[in-house]
Design a protein around this nucleic acid. Structure first.
Length: 491
DNA sequence: CTAGGGTTAG
């Protein structure tokens, strides 16, 4: 496999071992998936269609449970939170198998995502009882979920009280928390925290990079540069990542001119320029509409001794899809295969989106089938985007065909899937469609997704206007009578 | 689960 890659790329650039470029074993295909693969799907389906009480009885003896298997199943049930937790609880009574700390973390993550904080803390307590944790990972998950659901202040409180749970805060956990805040566009909160604790945790370059990135995410490159200035003044040297963060920041803020200047300066100052730098450039200029410049940079990097990665190809393919021509994108896709790269889900999604966008739905679906014979399966994003385009085209039957496929397979629909389909049910202004929308609404709640009030009202109004008073009342009961909402939606 | 590059709509 290594050899194949070398000959494909040429011996001039032997340093690809560090690149995160998976090689495509064109000649020797990978071994087929293990038998366990089959089991996972059938177990998942069993869990999905069995009542909780019965599940508790028959699940423990169904197969030989291992932490890995449980982990896989929980991942599959990620978009069906209540079922995932039922599954988790059903194994509690098992005689020989006990959940691993990872499984607990996973379950806690699922409960947190459903904002079922009661279950969340019950799981934490259970973890503590059997002395499995909670560990730093557990806290990281809870902090992230709190921040993600707009409770940054609660997260800060929790972080500051972590030591009471026996987990000393260190630089690592501090940085990771700063990152969580920054990624949730709470750079200001992160920076305030940083200012208070910079001495206590002896903040490092990584802390500064995280903050700079946080401001870049908010398109505040001047503030990011300020942060870095402060870093240098305190005697910490920036590295490639620092520069890449700023470069990306310029593009994000639409400052392509500045990005170009910055890139030139990196070259002039002989800073290290790596594959991420180039990928950022190819993508940045491409989406800004400068396709030629984007291509030039792509060609330039090879001459500069920097190998493109799959991400670099993905960037170029996306650029060609969006600003040039899908057929040119396919040429690049083929080229990447010839060179021995293994396309990933993103590669396919970008290409499939490009095809859908120009109305070539059939070819899009062809690629969707093709990815299965490759090493990647279509994911929720793949399904969602094709479903979305089918709906845009008014091909509701085809959209629902894919939706059904998801429900039965190993890729359960998520919140976006439901929203896409529900929205689509309003375009024809047909009574039947609104009933379907109502059923989707009920299903999504059942699966642990909380629809927006807007969605509720929209469906209610639709049903009332089309003479579905009976069904509307049912939905209304679901919304107002919190007693009828699943447990995890109650206060 | 300690930082940076590809997917989400015009």
């Amino acid at each position: 496999m290594l050899k194949l890659h070398k000959t494909a790329i040429g011996p001039k650039f032997p340093d690809f071992s560090s690149a995160k470029t998976p090689l495509k074993p064109h000649i020797a295909p990978p071994p087929p998936p293990a038998v366990a693969e089959v089991d996972v799907t059938s177990i998942t389906n069993h869990v999905l269609k069995t009542n909780p009480e019965i599940l508790t009885q028959n699940l423990p003896t169904l197969v030989q449970w291992t932490p890995e298997l449980v982990h896989t199943i929980l991942k599959r049930l990620w978009n069906h939170g209540p079922k995932a937790l039922q599954f988790f609880k059903a194994l509690d009574s098992h005689l020989s198998y006990t959940h691993s700390a990872t499984a607990f973390d996973h379950a806690i993550d699922i409960a947190a995502r459903m904002r079922d904080y009661k279950t969340l803390w019950a799981l934490v307590a259970q973890m503590r009882t059997i002395k499995l944790g909670p560990g730093p990972k557990t806290f990281a998950i809870i902090l992230e979920r709190y921040v993600a659901s707009g409770k940054a202040d609660k997260a800060v409180d929790l972080f500051l009280s972590m030591h009471k749970h026996g987990y000393p805060q260190d630089l690592t956990s501090f940085n990771s928390f700063l990152d969580v805040l920054c990624k949730a566009k709470q750079a200001e909160i992160a920076y305030n925290l940083f200012k208070v604790f910079r001495r206590k945790f002896r903040v490092d370059m990584i802390s500064y990079n995280i903050l700079a990135n946080g401001y870049c995410i908010m398109k505040r490159t001047p503030k990011a540069l300020e942060i870095l200035k402060e870093m240098v003044e305190r005697g910490l040297e920036p590295n490639v990542m620092t520069y890449n963060i700023i470069l990306k920041g310029f593009f994000r803020a639409g400052q392509t001119k500045e990005a170009w200047e910055f890139f030139l300066q990196m070259k002039r100052r002989k800073c290290e320029i790596d594959v991420v730098t180039y990928t950022t450039m190819v993508h940045g200029f491409g989406v800004a509409g400068e396709v030629e410049r984007s291509r030039k940079l792509f060609d330039e990097m090879v001459g500069a001794g920097v190998l493109p990665s799959v991400a670099t190809y993905n960037a170029l393919i996306q650029v060609l899809c969006k600003k040039d021509n899908v057929e040119n994108a396919i040429l690049v896709f083929d080229e990447m295969l010839r060179k021995g790269y293994l396309p990933n889900v993103t590669t396919y999604n970008v290409l499939i989106r490009g095809l859908c966008h120009v109305g070539k739905m059939d070819r899009a679906v062809e690629y969707m089938d093709k990815m299965k014979e490759d090493e990647c399966e279509p994911n929720v994003q793949t399904y969602n985007l094709v479903i979305r385009y089918y709906c845009d085209d008014g091909e509701f039957a085809k959209a629902f065909e894919l939706f059904e496929k998801m429900g039965s397979g190993h890729c359960l629909p998520n919140l976006d899937t439901y929203n896409i389909l529900i929205s689509a049910m309003f375009v024809r202004k047909k009574s039947d469609d609104l009933v379907v929308a109502g059923k989707l609404l009920i299903e999504m709640i059942d699966r642990g997704f909380l629809p927006r009030r807007f969605t509720f009202n929209r469906i209610l109004n639709g049903l009332l206007l089309t003479g579905n008073q009976e069904f509307a009342r049912e939905i209304l009961r679901l919304q107002s009578g919190s007693g009828r909402l699943p447990r995890h939606f109650r206060l």
